[in-house]
Design a protein around this nucleic acid. Structure first.
Lengths: 370, 370
DNA sequence: CTGAAAGCGCTTACAG
DNA sequence: CTGAAAGCGCTTACAG
């Protein structure tokens, strides 16, 4: 068989890739026909198609995506810029992106900014920052990506850092307020509301809060959710129950202690992240107060470690996977049709409570609403 | 100015990319010359170079990597296949890869197998497994990657799963015993040796061990390191001090209890991962034994949660970042010169102990060696 | 030092 | 239904 011969000869050449021309010769058709069967064009006769397919199979021919991309001006490649892939949120978001792209013939080219590693705690050093991002964007563009997803290391506004782009971009785990920008995040306010509601449903009326850095977007939004829940359930806001932390475990420890040693201490505490919730557990242990019997506790983030706390922490899980999926979905809509108007510019996905063992039910007088 | 006019006209076209031909016209040279300045060829006159450079700057021209790749048959793209990016080891390894590639003009195209998500606890289901991997490899090859890095989700032998490839591949966080294969991992035996040595140096003579699954490569290698340290320090191996766990926290709890309730209990325990070390802490708490005063404890992996244990856990840190760097370095050596013979086929990097607060010093009689 | 031309491996009107 | 040919945006001998 002639084909076999040629194949065998080609196999001898180290790492030889066949091209469409060689396939067309082996199948005795034109390259156009090979291309047509490759792309499932209906206009090729069944017999011809089968002949070509057989040659492709036998030669294990793999068409060059590169060459195709050059011609069709579409790479089916999306650039993912992550501020820092070692931050807990990022891998899951990438996982979500990847799941979607894989099912749609797209692939990811990753550009990891390594912000924490390079900037340490000066990750807010905007000048360097801008440069890193601009570079990453240029690199991705020269690779002809069809679109870009930008994954923040923590929620904040990065409006105006990335200038007008020839391809669509969507932000996730960060905000951008430009009129044309799309961002997908989770709904901090609703999540806080749900957490408080859960505590109220469990019979708690005196609910302390340890916030993150007071001026952060998240702290503000979550505080709003807290207030709204109080309002809806006709509970009084007691300012003594509100403590502003800094996201670190130690602040949960210190502020937890303050809360728990109040003359009329809260029966439940909402810590705005799991780390600070861990600090509250430390404080409770020191004071000989059992969690959840003495004080109930609810965290935020569903960090891996939270399930190893003693007791395992009830906490709000972030919809990380979904954020990735949603981001890439919006991006792909914009790639195919730039004006698919149905997508939200500022999408906020729901968090879900994961119930573990840090919240206890309290009996409450029947007169209470809710 | 003529250039300006043309540029402005071009800017009007939505998302228009300039190409080398247009640049050559604007600079009044041939495309060959533009290409030469782009590639820093020395054979272009200074004046010409500057003229071209200026046009490039003014137009913000970005050469197409795609087109270049097609011509030079090199994409400077390396394919990264991760078994599961949400597993704790993977992001750091990718971080290391990325750091190296970025400095060498290479980029990463990521293919995440999502094994845990798709196979659940059946991640050893080799049939499906093989398929996923084979697919990923084909996809990466059709994208013309110059090489592949395969990141395992846990150390194990995956020899023979990936067949002969037209591009080099290096494995990390898993083994492949093929004669032509390269793998980079960490040195389990040395790490265990170092951990035990550390305990011995701190004055411990009765050292318990909780291994992972007994038949895993890691457990075996680490057990060897344990034995060797005992031997070197002339300590007797007491079989009662060896317990085989299953990597889960609960087994650390149960086996820790067994160890601590022995008639002559160990004064220190080496748990082969942080999760089981956490279980030992649980056991100690239940028995009213303080860590490290009552029993010293050392873990393995330096998982993020280990620093939140009470007390913060002393543990072996995995050289994840370095593994990524080393893997890509070997890969790049093989890409440029397939026969760079100096690289180890089975590279094992050193772990480093991170000292926290779970190990206490013990006074030991002067007669003891070491 | 510079340019004309061929070619990388595909796709896509277009003609037949 | 099939094929010849042009072209995507680069690079690279080669000639001058």
């Amino acid at each position: 068989m002639k084909a076999r011969e040629i194949i065998n000869r080609l196999k001898l050449i180290e790492g030889a890739h066949l091209n469409i021309k060689e396939i067309s010769k082996l199948a005795q058709v034109s390259t156009a026909t090979v291309s047509n069967v490759l792309n499932n064009s209906p206009k090729v006769a069944q017999a011809t198609r089968e002949r070509v397919l057989r040659v492709i199979r036998e030669t294990q021919y793999r068409p060059s995506t590169i060459a195709k991309s050059l011609k069709v001006k579409r790479t089916n490649l999306i650039g993912v810029i992550s501020e820092d892939i070692t931050v807990f949120n990022t891998p899951e978001i990438i996982n979500g992106i990847d799941e979607y792209t894989e099912n749609h013939g797209f692939h990811i080219i990753l550009n990891n900014l390594r912000l924490y590693q390079r900037l340490g705690n000066h990750y807010a050093d905007t000048a360097k920052y801008r440069n890193f991002i601009a570079e990453a964007v240029q690199i991705l563009l020269s690779r002809q990506v069809d679109g870009i997803i930008y994954i923040g290391a923590h929620s904040r506004d990065i409006s105006g850092i990335i200038e007008h782009l020839p391809v669509p971009i969507v932000y996730t785990y960060c905000y951008s307020a430009g009129a044309e920008d799309y961002a997908v995040n989770y709904d901090d306010e609703a999540a806080a509301y749900d957490a408080i509601q859960y505590l109220i449903d469990a019979g708690h009326r005196k609910i302390g809060v340890i916030s993150g850095l007071y001026d952060s977007l998240q702290s503000q939004a979550r505080f709003k959710g807290y207030q709204r829940a109080l309002l809806d359930y006709k509970l009084l806001f007691n300012p003594a129950y509100l403590k502003a932390g800094d996201w670190e475990r130690e602040s949960g420890h210190a502020l937890g202690k303050e809360l728990l040693t109040l003359p009329d201490p809260p029966t439940a505490i909402f810590a705005m992240n799991d780390l600070m919730a861990g600090g509250v557990i430390d404080a409770a242990n020191e004071l000989g107060i059992a969690v959840p019997e003495g004080v109930s506790l609810i965290g935020f983030d569903n960090r891996e470690c939270s399930k190893f706390f003693a007791p395992p922490l009830t906490t709000m899980a972030l919809p990380l996977n979904e954020m990735g999926k949603q981001a890439v979905q919006i991006l792909m809509n914009r790639i195919v049709g730039p004006q698919s108007a149905t997508d939200a510019h500022d999408d906020r996905l729901k968090c879900t409570l994961v119930e573990r063992q840090s919240v206890a039910k309290r009996v409450v007088s029947a007169a209470m609403p809710g």
